[in-house]
């Protein structure tokens, strides 16, 4: 990359400068604005649920207007349910981005790749910018791209676990082989883990629980922002080589103060 060339994340033709996608679940609406600001996030995820007449606060009032909303299809157990939720999300009037999330069980919350491919196919044809949450499997990722996914979102470890890059080797394969942004989603629990994923060449990081369960949410958002930025720079710079064995001096091997 040239020094002055813009380093953007491009999703479905939309350019973003931030590589930190922020979740909005499991914390106070009042913290969202500070979280978005301190994270420097340009994309925030949301869920779609049955409206409650007792709840008079609209989450959209708490999200800065310049932010791109990324509704998810959480709660969907198959492609049809995901498509239904995606269409309702679009009807809510906040754009064409959709994060497909299809899970058959509530214990491990693992994504169903086959159903996700089916839903991606349907929604991409309907003009959605489809970001599918997936188990990091190369064949499934290729099928998602063929089906029209704008990116793939492999899990690092189970949702909400904060366990980090348990699937590291397989995410690396996706990064190396898939010609779309690879956004690491789920399980990233600390800035160092986010940084490591970015050093590997991930295009972006999605995090929610790591922030929602942190002692100081906005401060953790800022820490993630810096870690993601550092990891991106390291990736662009190209990491130094690792020796298979032995050592290599950093100092001159001549001119020692001895005989």
């Amino acid at each position: 990359m040239e020094k002055n060339e813009e380093d953007c994340l491009v999703l479905g033709g939309h350019k973003f400068h931030s590589r930190f996608i922020l979740g909005s679940g499991k914390y106070s609406l009042k913290l969202i604005e500070a979280a978005v600001q301190d994270a420097g996030a340009e994309i925030v995820t949301l869920a779609v649920r049955r409206a409650n007449t007792k709840e008079h606060e609209n989450i959209l009032d708490y999200i800065p207007k310049q932010v791109t909303l990324l509704p998810n299809t959480s709660g969907a157990r198959n492609a049809e349910e995901a498509v239904r939720i995606a269409r309702l999300a679009r009807e809510l009037g906040c754009g064409d981005f959709i994060k497909i999330e299809i899970m058959r069980d509530s214990k491990y919350l693992l994504p169903d790749n086959q159903e996700t491919i089916r839903a991606t196919d349907i929604l991409a044809r309907e003009g959605f910018v489809v970001l599918p949450y997936m188990y990091p499997d190369l064949n499934a990722a290729r099928d998602l791209v063929s089906a029209g996914a704008a990116a793939v979102m492999p899990l690092a470890s189970p949702i909400g676990s904060n366990k980090g890059l348990a699937t590291k080797e397989f995410i690396q394969i996706l990064i190396d082989e898939i010609d779309r942004p690879v956004i690491v989603d789920a399980g990233i629990g600390s800035p160092s883990q986010a940084c490591e994923a970015m050093e590997m060449g991930a295009a972006a990081i999605m995090a929610n629980t790591a922030l929602a369960t942190a002692g100081n949410l906005p401060l953790m958002a800022a820490a993630f922002r810096e870690a993601i930025s550092a990891g991106r720079k390291a990736y662009l710079a190209g990491l130094g080589r690792v020796l298979s064995r032995g050592a290599a001096a950093s100092d001159p091997l001549t001119g020692f103060l001895r005989d």
């Binding site: 609406l29 779609v48 049955r50 409206a51 998810n72």
Partner: peptide, 26 residues
């Protein structure tokens, strides 16, 4: 149901209505 049809759609027995909104989520 598009917003423009809210006024003209009159509910009757056995209709099924889902009313959804955005909430915090990952």
């Amino acid at each position: 149901l598009g917003r423009t049809a809210y006024d003209s759609t009159i509910l009757k027995d056995d209709d099924v209505l889902e009313i959804v909104c955005f909430m915090g989520g990952g």
